[in-house]
């Protein structure tokens, strides 16, 4: 067992537990975006930053990838942490303003506007879909491609992958394009941007046998109309 203190509260956790798990066990909320139980921690979104150590040696780490250490002193909501988190949310908003998940995060953290050049991406490169595809669906059909500003997620050579079983797991887990799901209830939709996106399964007849995890599924609702 490892004993660490989180926000001054002592906690004993098994070896190999991450700081995030320990903090959640004690009931301290830490927002996450790229972390999902059942998928390997990835540390991409940095929303789960916490401050460890004391004095001038204190530093920010991503709690989802940081293993609990003996005697570790963690602060999950210090001024520095909150500032960093708000900045991350602003940056996320700057790239993916239409995502409901990110909008919710923003409102929860009292981020009312962002100061950066507005882009309209539909991907924050959190890698959830890649891990979902590989680890839960055992397919490995999609992956990261390129580097830097050219980094994107997709199938190799942009061709329909042989490994893909059209399970829809990637769409279901995606925090950036999840906004589509509010389409069936337009009054609850925040920006309506989802209505302008066309899900791929709508266009091609071969997707009729699609195993879909989305509920309610936008495509199915549109088909009904």
């Amino acid at each position: 067992m490892i004993t660490l203190s989180i926000n001054g509260l002592p906690a004993s956790v098994e070896k190999g537990t991450t700081v995030l798990e320990a903090a959640r066990f004690l009931g301290f909320p830490i927002p996450t975006l790229c972390h999902k139980e059942g998928l390997t921690p990835y540390g991409a979104c940095r929303l789960c930053v916490v401050e460890i150590g004391e004095g001038p040696g204190a530093r920010l780490v991503s709690s989802c990838t940081y293993p609990a250490e003996e005697g570790l002193k963690v602060r999950t909501a210090s001024e520095r942490v909150m500032k960093a988190r708000r900045m991350i949310i602003e940056l996320l908003l700057a790239s993916c303003p239409q995502s409901k998940t990110i909008q919710d995060l923003a409102s929860r953290h009292n981020v009312r506007q962002q100061r950066f050049r507005q882009e309209h991406e539909n991907c924050i490169l959190c890698g959830l879909c890649v891990r979902m595809c590989k680890e839960q669906m055992m397919a490995g059909a999609i992956g990261f491609r390129g580097r830097g500003k050219n980094r994107s997620i997709g199938t190799p050579f942009d061709m329909r992958s042989e490994e893909c079983r059209l399970c829809g797991g990637c769409m279901q887990i995606c925090p950036a394009c999840q906004a589509r799901c509010t389409y069936t209830e337009p009054e609850r939709a925040i920006c309506g941007g989802c209505a302008n996106l066309s899900p791929p399964c709508l266009e091609k007849e071969q997707f009729t046998d699609m195993m879909c995890y989305m509920s309610p599924c936008v495509a199915c609702e549109i088909k009904k109309d």
Binding site: K134, G140, G143, R145, G146, R147, P156, F157
Partner: peptide, 26 residues
């Protein structure tokens, strides 16, 4: 492309992994 497919098959990795590496490095 055929070489990447072959590498993926022989090393028992997904083509997406191999393609990711091949596109990552300049």
């Amino acid at each position: 492309e055929a070489a990447l497919r072959l590498v993926a098959k022989e090393t028992e990795r997904s083509l997406a992994d191999i393609y990711g590496v091949a596109t990552f490095y300049k």
